[in-house]
Simulated scan of single mutants.
Amino acid sequence: MVAVLSCGCAAVETAEPPAHPPYTQQPIPSGAAVAPPPASTAAAPDCGDPTASLRPFPPGETPASPALDRIRERGRLVVGLDTSSNLFSFLDPATGTIEGFDVDIAREVARDLFGDPQRVDFRVVAAKDRVPALQAGTVDIVVETMTVTCERRAQIAFSTVYFEARQRVLAMRGSGVESAADLDGRRVCTVVDTTNLQHIQQVQPAATVVTVQNWADCLVVLQQRQVDAVTTDDSILAGLAVQDPNLEIVGPGFSYEPYGVGVNKADTDLVRHVNGTLERIRTDGTWQRIHERWLNVLGPPPPPPTPRYED
């Protein structure tokens, strides 16, 4: 707006000072960025069934092997995970301990190695660092809502599937976002270097995708209205939704996300050991108890995923 002053001469226009904003904008989390378009449309590598893994050892057998002997000599199982995935792996503020569905899965692996589920050292590993951590040997296994894909199987080994999720959308109630289709021209958050980023760019290429380092950061930018929605697996979205009653999971699932335990490709006997643990907890009711403890927000526990083996 301008003001015109009459002074018996030529009109002089003076701009009014801009109004101060009613509040200071919150900074975005460190490492947040707008994702570039996909580099190419090349087809993903084909490895057959990526969820097929190595058969477990026969019950009661724990053979000597370089990988298992290394862990037994150390006396601890070193597990990579993420502490920002509420319900799966998070830091309990009341106890100061790491808890969740993935944590309990890792403890069952340690139980079968040592007879003690507490003999675990947890290392916080960002999503982008999961594969490098396994390749470098800084962790023995990664239990971190990690989807089994052919691309990842070219770099690391996986256990059989221990949880099945579907990618969906999380939005503010009443926002008008009811599915991925409504993200045309809007901003959506996901974590960098995840299958979720690939899928949302395929399903809704007209969305602006903001990538962050962890799921807690996605919750922050959604609450600060810096994005219109978050997209990831429904299991992870449930953990975000229980932290804020203004949020709701919307729309149908648009991708299949089978979770596997990541292992270094050279540690085949460790893969078999992990698969033995997963087979045990599927049959003795432990898997269902872990699901009821952490994921009752998703409803009654379904049957555990059926294992597939390649040998």
Rank of each mutant, 00 (worst) to 15 (best):
Met172Phe: 14
Leu219Thr: 04
Arg74Asn: 08
Asp121Asn: 13
Leu247Cys: 05
Asn86Thr: 09
Arg308Phe: 06
Val4Asn: 05
Ala106Gln: 02
Leu240Ile: 13
Asp234Thr: 14
Thr83Lys: 00
Val250Ile: 04
Gln135Asn: 13
Ala136Leu: 12
Ala35Phe: 13
Gln288Lys: 10
Gln243Asp: 04
Arg70Glu: 12
Asp102Tyr: 04
Pro37Lys: 15
Ser255Val: 02
Asp69Tyr: 12
Gln26Cys: 12
Val12Lys: 06
Met146Leu: 15
Ala266Lys: 06
Pro66Asn: 07
Glu108Val: 03
Asp284Gly: 05
Leu270Thr: 06
Thr62Ala: 07
Arg173Asp: 08
Tyr162Met: 03
Ala64Pro: 11
Glu279Val: 03
Asn86Tyr: 11
Val230Ile: 02
Thr83Phe: 14
Glu257Pro: 04
Ala241Phe: 07
Ser159Asp: 07
Arg111Leu: 08
Gly276Ala: 07
Pro36Tyr: 09
Ser235Cys: 07
Asn296Phe: 14
Ala207His: 04
Val120Glu: 00
Asp49Cys: 01
Phe90Tyr: 12
Pro117Glu: 00
Thr147Gly: 14
Ala133Cys: 09
Ile98Thr: 12
Thr149Asn: 02
Pro252Asp: 14
Glu151Lys: 04
Ile236Val: 11
Gly8Tyr: 04
Glu16Trp: 14
Val161Thr: 13
Leu170Tyr: 05
Ser53Gly: 08
Thr160Asn: 06
Arg72Phe: 11
Ala10Lys: 10
Gly276Lys: 01
Thr283Pro: 10
Pro59Ala: 04
Phe90Glu: 07
Pro36His: 12
Pro258Ile: 07
Asn196Leu: 00
Cys47Asn: 02
His199Thr: 12
Val188His: 08
Leu183Ala: 02
Pro304Phe: 01
Asn264Lys: 12
Leu87Pro: 00
Gly174Cys: 09
Ile200Leu: 10
Arg225Tyr: 06
Ala32Val: 00
Val242Thr: 14
Glu108Phe: 09
Arg152Tyr: 05
Ser175Asp: 05
Ala52Pro: 08
Val220Asn: 13
Asn296Val: 10
Val177Asp: 03
Gln135Trp: 10
Asp69Leu: 09
Val78Met: 04
Glu144His: 12
Val12Asp: 14
Arg55Ala: 00
Ser175Asn: 05
Thr286Glu: 03
Thr97Pro: 10
Thr194Ser: 05
Ser53Val: 03
Val2Ser: 13
Thr149Tyr: 01
Tyr23Glu: 15
Ala42Glu: 12
Arg308Ile: 11
Val230Phe: 01
Glu178Pro: 11
Ala207Arg: 05
Ala39Phe: 11
Val109Lys: 01
Arg293Glu: 15
Thr62Pro: 14
Leu197Ile: 10
Val221Asp: 05
Pro205Asn: 12
Thr24Gln: 14
Pro305His: 01
Thr190Arg: 08
Ala238Gln: 06
Ala11Ser: 14
Asp182Cys: 06
Asp193His: 10
Gly285Thr: 00
Val188Thr: 09
Val139Trp: 03
Ala229Arg: 08
Thr283Gln: 12
Ala181Asp: 15
Asn86Lys: 13
Val142Phe: 08
Val148Lys: 02
Leu91Trp: 09
Thr195Asp: 14
Val177Asn: 09
Val188Gln: 03
Ser235Ala: 15
Arg107Thr: 00
Thr277Leu: 05
Arg119Phe: 07
Asn214Ala: 04
Ala43Thr: 06
Ser175Ala: 06
Cys189Phe: 02
Gly262Ile: 15
Val212Thr: 06
Arg107His: 09
Ala157Arg: 06
Pro307Tyr: 01
Leu219Tyr: 10
Trp294Tyr: 15
Glu310Asp: 13
Ala43Ser: 11
Leu5Asn: 14
Arg168Trp: 04
